[in-house]
Computed example of a mutant assay.
Amino acid sequence: MKLLDIGEVSQRSGVPPSTLRYYDEIGLIRSVARHGLRRQFEPLALTQLSLVALGKSAGFSLQDIAGMFGADGQPDLPRGDLLVRADEIDRQIGNLTTLRDALRHVAECRAPSHMECPSFQKLLRLAKRRRDPSQQSKERASSE
């Protein structure tokens, strides 16, 4: 099996060598040899790096992602966790869609003032209800 030099892994994956060294140190990928001072990796490292990028895009922590690899470095994806995260992303999509629609409405609203627009008022009430409860208690405390 042909080993890949850290420079080649970096070039092929788009991941900087410093990040590759960090990932190696925390066990996300594993160097299997050295050529001088340069780390050498099996081709599997490229697949692992693709999964790391995908996991990061999905909002998983590096620690979560590390748990998605078996002892042999092969992917061992926790389907239940993936479904939970997919549901969270669906909620985010819904919230972002609402936000996008609100921004478009505010930008295109023909009311003389946004404060006179019933749709805008409704959006403000919805936004107030969706705020983080800890933020609401901080605001209440500062207004007292």
Score class of each variant (00 low, 15 high):
Thr47Cys: 10
Gly67Val: 05
Met68Gly: 13
Ser143Gln: 14
Gln48Trp: 05
Gly36Phe: 12
Ser18Pro: 00
Asp72Ala: 01
Arg140Ser: 08
Pro43Thr: 10
Leu96Asp: 02
Gln48Asp: 07
His114Gly: 07
Pro17Met: 02
Gln63His: 10
Ile6Pro: 02
Ile26His: 05
Thr97Ala: 13
Thr19Leu: 06
Glu42Pro: 02
Gln11Val: 04
Ala107Pro: 01
Leu77Ser: 08
Gly94Asp: 15
Pro17Val: 10
Arg125Asn: 12
His35Lys: 06
Ser61Gln: 10
Leu54Glu: 15
Gln40Glu: 06
Pro133Trp: 02
Asp76Cys: 07
Arg129Asn: 13
Leu46Thr: 07
Ala141Tyr: 12
Val106Glu: 03
Arg125Leu: 14
Arg131Cys: 13
Leu124Val: 14
Leu51Ile: 15
Ser18Met: 02
Leu62Val: 11
Arg39Met: 06
Thr97Gly: 06
Lys56Ser: 11
Leu77Trp: 08
Arg140Trp: 10
Tyr22Ser: 01
Val52Met: 02
Ala141Arg: 14
Arg79Ser: 09
Arg39Cys: 05
Phe41Gly: 01
Val32Lys: 04
Leu49Ile: 15
Arg100Phe: 08
Gln63Val: 08
Ala71Asp: 02
Leu83Met: 13
Pro43Val: 10
Gly14Cys: 06
Asp24Arg: 04
Pro78Met: 01
Glu139Lys: 05
Glu144Thr: 13
Ile26Glu: 06
Leu124Tyr: 10
Glu88Cys: 09
Arg39Asp: 01
Thr47Arg: 07
Thr47Pro: 03
Thr19Ser: 09
His35Asp: 11
Ser119His: 09
Gln48Met: 05
Leu28Ile: 11
Asp76Asn: 07
Asp132Met: 03
Ala127Tyr: 14
Leu99His: 08
Leu4Lys: 03
Pro16Glu: 04
Lys138Asp: 08
Pro43Asp: 04
Leu62Gly: 03
Asn95Leu: 15
Leu46Cys: 11
Glu139Gly: 00
Glu116Ala: 04
Pro17Ile: 08
Asp72His: 03
